[in-house]
Design a protein around this nucleic acid. Sequence first.
DNA 1: GCAAAAAGCAAGAAATTATTCGGAAGAATT
DNA 2: AATTCTTCCGAATAATTTCTTGCTTTTTGC
Lengths: 152, 152
Amino acid sequence: MELDLTDIKLLKLLQEDATMSTKEISLKLHKSIAAVHERIKKLKKSGYIKKTVAILDRQKIGIGLISFSQVFLKAHTFEVLNEFEEEVSKFPEVMECYQMAGSYDFMLRIATKDMDTYHQFLRNKLAVLPHVNTVQTYFVLSETKSETAYHF
Amino acid sequence: MELDLTDIKLLKLLQEDATMSTKEISLKLHKSIAAVHERIKKLKKSGYIKKTVAILDRQKIGIGLISFSQVFLKAHTFEVLNEFEEEVSKFPEVMECYQMAGSYDFMLRIATKDMDTYHQFLRNKLAVLPHVNTVQTYFVLSETKSETAYHF
DNA sequence: GCAAAAAGCAAGAAATTATTCGGAAGAATT
DNA sequence: AATTCTTCCGAATAATTTCTTGCTTTTTGC
């Protein structure tokens, strides 16, 4: 499936605010309500729109600490990488997990209540995973920008 | 404003899927439609729900490269930090910007079409910002997990 | 170059959902 | 005990979504 200019505009709008009604969007895009509706349906079905979610204020819900952890593994075979990915993904504290090119193996973004909770997570969950060699953690002092919308 | 158990369940549901109708939610939470509606309204008004957005498939929309850049500044005065934050936040390629504790100053998550686009961004936009001393970039090979929902 | 097929769109009808309102029940405060 | 405050509910209605139909435009094959 190929996107035309209207699809792109539509995706960009929904990326910023998914609460807009089909009617509002139809006015902005100069299309009919039915046309917009069909396009959205198609974009969801074809996987361009993966999901629509509410973004919460993390401080307010008690997530006070964000940290980035660089994880080095002891080995780099297919099985080791796969097992680590599988296990680390199960932790609710791990918001993001990336395999990296360069000097370390994985980068994790970890969200916890506070430093103490992070400490428990590191000692009892992350560090005890098999194949983990070392973990280097950097803590976030302040969040300047945090976007979910891509510019394309 | 304090959250009760129903609020927390509600937020957790909306974090995973914000397309659910008030009726569906009311069935899951064993409350009336009106009660759920009022709670959502209140949670939005009080800022617990910051926004609701569509999450797109980044590969499909042509965002092929994610990278993390660690930025070191030349100075660390209030003005320098502020100016850097302000300028770097304007770049659409910068999805996230965090001031860090530890050995580097800022951590950026950068989304671009490909390596060439990243290169242009680095040379023409990021590296030429005033006060930037060095930039160290790590590229993402694969995305194992990417969540927007906090577990609280 | 023309006809058939396909895709896209607007308008309206039907189904569903969001929103508002009055009032009841319970908890907290005085 | 009275009062205020909050939360909740059901019902009414306002609005929106969703689907259908028919028309127009574009594409494809001959």
